[in-house]
């Protein structure tokens, strides 16, 4: 390993600009992914918060009879995902509204009649709070003629999912684009290193060095470039996070395992780029 490591470091010294640009390109591609990582992680947190509430509210028609309501309650209690169904009468709803919205007490006091509908608050079991489950329960409730409207946070939950998929697509396209450019630049750096060492390589082949031994310094060079790029990306992502969270709004930093994964991805990108260049340009017997 000492020989390979020494030669890989010599390659860095020989073309520092190219090595720097290679690392910067990997850093750029991973930085884009890192930013999305923050967005995705925070969206996930929000979704988890919504899921933790795990609540669907069915507003009942004024025309619904107690028997209709009782039948619906009975039906919902039988659904596997449902933990609890609670009936909130119109009077109770008004009472709650008066308590929670005390600043509007004058408005509530001047009402001739109670405008609030009765409702059923449906709580789901802890392991049944995924968006698909919530949606299917809500659809089932909504299909009942006694129900006027169902709410489960779908208005903005859908927007959050849309935002996540748009961000994922943009990140995928940009990240992949930068990754391809990074692979091309690392390939150029490795080609340059191969050219600079062509006489040594010829002698290594002459005296019986194995192909793996000949390739190793170049792969190591790619690995080091990639890891450096990964670390730069982690640093840039963290700086962006710091600026965002201090100046704009509070976001949550991504888990350490994601950071380590990103840096290792940089290393893997570097090795792949070198491998491609070495295979194409190092003619070993």
């Amino acid at each position: 390993m000492t020989y390979s490591l020494r030669e890989a470091l010599v390659a860095f010294r020989r073309a520092p600009l190219l090595a720097g640009v290679s690392a910067a390109m990997i850093a750029l591609s991973l930085f884009v992914v890192g930013l999305f990582g923050i967005v995705a992680f925070n969206i996930r947190k929000v979704i988890e918060g919504v899921e933790a509430r795990g609540e669907v509210v069915a507003y009942l028609r004024d025309t619904a009879s107690p028997a209709d309501v009782q039948a619906l309650r009975h039906e919902l209690t039988g659904v596997a995902a449902v933990r609890e169904v609670r009936y909130v009468s119109r009077e109770e709803a008004l009472q709650v509204a008066k308590e929670e919205l005390s600043e509007f007490s004058a408005v509530f006091g001047s009402l001739d009649s109670n405008p609030l509908p009765a409702s059923l608050e449906v709580r789901l079991k802890p392991n049944q709070k995924g968006p698909d489950v919530v949606r299917s329960v809500a659809q089932r409730i909504g299909a009942n003629p006694a129900v006027e409207e169902v709410r489960y946070g779908n208005e903005w939950l859908d927007k959050v999912f849309l935002l996540r998929s748009v961000a994922a697509t943009a990140t995928g396209v940009l990240g992949a684009g930068f990754a391809v450019v990074a692979i091309l630049i690392i390939g150029a750096a490795v080609r340059l290193a191969i050219f600079a060492r062509r006489e040594e390589i010829a002698i290594m082949q002459l005296v019986g060095a194995t192909n793996w031994f000949i390739r190793k310094p170049f792969l190591l060079e790619g690995l080091m470039t990639g890891l450096l790029g990964g670390m730069l990306a982690a640093l840039a992502t963290w700086l962006s996070y710091s600026v965002l969270t201090n100046a704009v709004f509070t976001v949550v930093w991504i888990p350490d395992s994601w950071v380590v994964g990103g840096i290792l991805t940089g290393g893997a990108l570097g090795v792949v780029a070198s491998w491609i260049a070495v295979r194409r340009h190092l003619r070993v017997a």
Partner: peptide
């Protein structure tokens, strides 16, 4: 095989 070529070359001075 390629690896054997490397080993063979250690038996050949050039």
């Amino acid at each position: 095989r390629p690896r054997e070529i490397a080993l063979l070359r250690r038996k050949i001075g050039y």
